[in-house]
Every structure is written in structure tokens, then in C-alpha cells.
Design a protein around this nucleic acid. Structure first.
Lengths: 238, 238
DNA sequence: AATCAAAACTGACAAAAGTCATCTTTTTGT
DNA sequence: ACAAAAAGATGACTTTTGTCAGTTTTGATT
């Protein structure tokens, strides 16, 4: 599959307002804009690979990307799912290490690449931007601490419920008393998010469905009863 | 227990070389030094609490501190163990959030407190320092990603072995063909690091002891055969 | 429309790990 | 030095979850 280029000015990007680039001066933004390369990726294509050296920053314009690690037996663990407006691969770039994870397209995506020189240039000349990046990174770290504790002490059922709620928060399209998770995840991917076996996810999902907590719509999941799901996740006691 | 103050000039601190403050200009270092308050803590005392607002940065001069989260049932998960030279509580400070974890002294400690105004002042005036902090934070994030994947897909036995090796790397005092983990951890704390029940840790440790991988020395653990431990951790195949 | 492959699902079973109860040893405070 | 409390250890049992083997359904391709 050949890579297809496209181009959208950063200043006109509809996701600028959700991005860390929001608030950048016109000069800084055009410095980013003038050096970026934008590429369309198909589902299944890889953006970067574990073990390789970052050469710049990816910024999502459209689609969904999973960032995951493979263990020795080849099992995936999904660390993060990136959506439009998100940065991709900034951790390894900023820590000056190799990528520790692989990024693969879940839903056809448009992603811009900013060479590290230009990104670092803006970062260094602009303390406000730097501060915003630090704040975002540290917030992300807090999210991961939360996940760690969850993984350590919650059952698979609780974790699945919690992750469905989290996905609802991030990718939910609100309907009447219910919310569709706008993300076509395979059972296998969902298992890789929760940290369990595919079969276990399948069984638990059909439990949740029987109990009227969720419904299936094509490849997507609709959350029917977020409150009961939260109980399953042991997030609320009542 | 009353807090006992002490004072050591940052410039003379034996751990400066291991700290992120290393490389700061004499003016910046004295700005930190002039505003810090240094306190001696006894084992069991708390440095900060989950849910409270950070007012500054803690910098370890002596002792060991565990940073942990409590789950609903009151079970601890230890995120990090801080040693001399380490910063404490920087994540919540930099993300401008409440503390998401509690810090408690494991071994009698001396800890300096730097008010956030002064820390931020130095951070903002000194891009090199800022960059070093960002690099460290992003590196830490990588460590946590590693832990997440480990927690998701490894057995308790593998995780215990991996954590013993990790503790050996950080707190190990090398002897002849063996290494003493210089950290007096209770079985319960070790369980909170690995993310399992205390009884399970006790059983596995005595397995490892029977197999000659480790030995007990008072409250501490000596790693006798790191290679075999690494096999148990599934880190090496052979 | 037929064919193939991948994904989803189901059941049976085994292994891993948690829980609870109890006992022993060590540590701590008076 | 002693009592009380905490930590460590062990056994029995249950629950959870993973694995494996097989079937059904779905989706893509020719």
C-alpha cells in the first residue's frame, strides 16, 4: 500500500482547538506547518515500531490509532488509543529513547509528521508551550498510575466495565439515555486494553449484554446503563 | 511525633550529583537552597496525602519513601519507592492536580521541601533544567508503560521475580556473586509492589529461597542467582 | 454466489491466585 | 523483661481466569 499524502494548514485544522498546539503564536504555528508532512494511512498500517528511534512527532488529524507493546508470547497490551488532535510518539521523543511501543492504525487515519528539529525549536523558544506540554505529560502519567492500580487490584470484570466507561467518556456519541462508543474494536483489541484473554472478554460482554448494560451495534458497543456499569466496575458502592 | 528540622546546603548535598538539580547554576541552586525547609521523618510518617493539593516539591536527602494508592477495599498499590536524590510529588505539582497518591516513610528519612513558587521560578528561567525535567518525566512514563504491560500479562511468580531484579538494580549492594537489596520491605509492602496478596508473596519467596535464588538477611533479601531469577521472570528464554 | 479466512462464540477443563482460619515468630512499647 | 501487637508462615478451600479444542458467524475476495 502506497502512502498517500494530503495537506491541511495547521491554522485551519479542525482539531487545533483540542490539540497542544492550540494557543501557539501564528509564527510558531507556521513553523510547524511549513515543515510537516501529512500522510493518509489505511487500517492495519503501522506508524512506528517498538525498538526504533523517533525522528519527529506525529499529530493526528483523523482516524484512530492503537499504541501497544508486544510481550514475549506475542500478546498485545494496548497502552493508549489516539484520536484526532492527539500527539503520538512524544514520550520516546522527549525522553530521547527508542520507541517502547508500536503504533498501528485502527481506523483509516490522517496523520501529520513534524520533524523533531522543528518541534524542539518551537518547544525551546516558547516556554508557555513547553509548560503546557509538561502539564499534559504529567497528567498522562497520573492516568497511567490510575491504570496501574486498577490492573493490580481489580478483577477482569471490574476492569472491563471500567474500560468501557472510559471509552464511553472519550469516544462516546451521546444518544437518548445511552451512548455509542464510536470505535470499531475487535474483541481481541478490547482484551488487549483490559489485559485479559479474548474469550474472557467475549463471555463478560455477553453477561453485560444479558444484564442490559450494553448492546452491540455492528462492530461497536452502545452503553445502555452507565450507572450499573459503574457498579460493575466497583466505582460506586450504592 | 514532632518534626525535626535540619539543614544542609544544596551545593554540599551528597546526592546533588544524582539529582535533577545537578548542573544548575550557583544562582539557581542558591535560589532553591534559600527557600527550602528540611525535615527529618520517622518510619511510618506521611509526607503527603492522596486528594490534597501540592504546595511544593519534595527532594529526598536520606531514607526511603513509598508512594502508593489505596483502593476501595483499602489495599495498597505501591507506584514508586523514592531514594535519596529523587524528587517526590512532582507529577501532581507539574500537572496542577491534587495528589493521586500518598507518600509514607519506609526508612527514617530527611526530606527537603521547596515551595512551588521558587521551583517554578527556576524552571521557567532555565530552559535546560526544564528540558531535563521533561526528559526525566517522560522516561518515568516509559517505565510505567513497561509496568503496565507486565501487570497485564505476566503471572505473579514472574512479576515477583522481575520486581526483585528491579529492586536489586536500584537498591542492590553488590557482594561476591550476590547482591543485597538494601531496603527493609515487609511482605505486605512487597505484595503491594507486585500487585498480589501477602500470602502469595510469602509462598513464592519461600519457593525462590528453596531453589537457592534468594536468601533472607534480617528484613532484607539477598539475590543469590540473578540469572535464574531472570528466567523465573521470563526475561531470558535460555 | 461460492469460497475462504478471520473473528466471534461456546464448553470443558486446568492452573493460578485469592481468601480465610490458624499458628508461630518477631517486634514494639511499657 | 514481659505483654501485646504486628508480621510471617502454612493449610484448606474457592473463585477466577486462562487454555485448548471445536463450532458458528461474518466479512472479504474472486
Amino acid at each position: 500500500m502506497a502512502k498517500v499524502e494530503f495537506n491541511i494548514a495547521c491554522s485551519l485544522c479542525e482539531h487545533l482547538k483540542d490539540s497542544l498546539f492550540n494557543g501557539l503564536s501564528p509564527e510558531d504555528l507556521s513553523r510547524i506547518n511549513n515543515h510537516k508532512t501529512c500522510v493518509q494511512y489505511k487500517k492495519g498500517q503501522n506508524i512506528f515500531y517498538e525498538g526504533t528511534r523517533p525522528t519527529g512527532l506525529y499529530c493526528m488529524n483523523a482516524g484512530k490509532v492503537k499504541v501497544f507493546k508486544n510481550n514475549v508470547q506475542g500478546k498485545e497490551f494496548i497502552i493508549y488509543i489516539a484520536k484526532p488532535g492527539d500527539f503520538l510518539g512524544y514520550r520516546a521523543l522527549l525522553s530521547e529513547e527508542f520507541y517502547q511501543a508500536t503504533a498501528t492504525v485502527l481506523e483509516d487515519a490522517k496523520i501529520c509528521f513534524i520533524p523533531k528539529e522543528n518541534f524542539f525549536e518551537v518547544l525551546q523558544k516558547n516556554p508557555t508551550f513547553m509548560k503546557r506540554v509538561v502539564k499534559a505529560v504529567c497528567h498522562e502519567m497520573g492516568v497511567m498510575e490510575e491504570k496501574l492500580a486498577e490492573l493490580a487490584h481489580k478483577s477482569v470484570r471490574e476492569r472491563l466495565a471500567a474500560n468501557l466507561l472510559m471509552l464511553k467518556e472519550t469516544y462516546g456519541m451521546e444518544g437518548e439515555g445511552s451512548s455509542l462508543i464510536d470505535l470499531a474494536l475487535s474483541r481481541e483489541d478490547l482484551a488487549s486494553i483490559v489485559g485479559t484473554a479474548t474469550e474472557t472478554v467475549i463471555r463478560l460482554l455477553s453477561d453485560f449484554k444479558s444484564d442490559g448494560l450494553i448492546a452491540f451495534e455492528g462492530k461497536k458497543i452502545r452503553v445502555l446503563d452507565a450507572r450499573k456499569l459503574a457498579k460493575q466496575a466497583d466505582l460506586i458502592v450504592a
